[in-house]
Amino acid sequence: MSHLARLAATAPAPVFAAIGPGLAPAVERLLARPGLRRAATPREAALLLVAGAIPDRAAGALDRVHDQVPHPRRTVRWDGTGDIERALLDARADLLGGGESAPDRRPDAPPAPWRGKGDHGQGGEGMMGGTPYGRPMAMTGADIRDGLQLDRYTARVGPFAPMLPPGLVLEVTLQGDVIVAVEVQAPAFDQPAEADAPDLVAARMLRLLGLPGAADRVAAGGRPRAAGLLRAVPPGLVPVGGRDARDRLAGCLAGRSQEIEPPDLAALLPGLEWAEAMLALASLPPSSLAQEALAA
């Protein structure tokens, strides 16, 4: 092991978690430990933690996430038993020592070949028209904020998006940072009741607010130790039952668990900016976004 690798081994291991049914609270508490760091994107991670049995509907998504972890990388599977922290640290030490990196699962080819038609092989005229790599360019559409027509970007986010409950797939249409349409394509995976624990809900919100240290302390049962936390949450954000996201964060930090009617995301989220919407979703207990809740 080189000096550089030894130095790297002293830093917390960056882990991206793909969480299946039943293991969300265990994984969140695991990645709050000091020796591990929860990576916000696969690009930041060295290890992919696959927790629980991933349902078939998410298998393709898992492959896509796996291939986005840069080399050298390793996948560690966990069924909820055994010393997973040891296994993760061992895998990282092996990678740093020159261990073999996991190969791609998906073919190294764009979804469709490049087909440009302009002078320089671009898609079409300017930004309009054409389907480079089989994927169209964004086109303008009606605006819900101030009437200025801007490009609409539609994408499915999830099931392993770290800001959403595991399993939840949202088809989101964005104009800039404003959400103009939302459709729930798949509900969140079923999780044990502990996933709704107030400290875990608070930790998720703190992580989205850019305070991973405070989030780890809260998930480990401590205090956040950050001043003016509540004012970081915009007032009046997605009120459910007369309480907005700021009230919910205050309640969670005070250790009060919350009972919430399953929200209608397609009606609640449009008009919000992306960051606000994700913060509001994180303030809801994940059980309110699971199967029975959304079916009801």
Partner: peptide, 18 residues
């Protein structure tokens, strides 16, 4: 490909914004 938590985009992410 853009990171969408395993999801896929419909269009390229090159869009005009205000």
């Amino acid at each position: 490909a853009p990171f969408l938590g395993g999801g896929t985009p419909d269009t390229h992410a090159w869009s005009r914004y205000h």
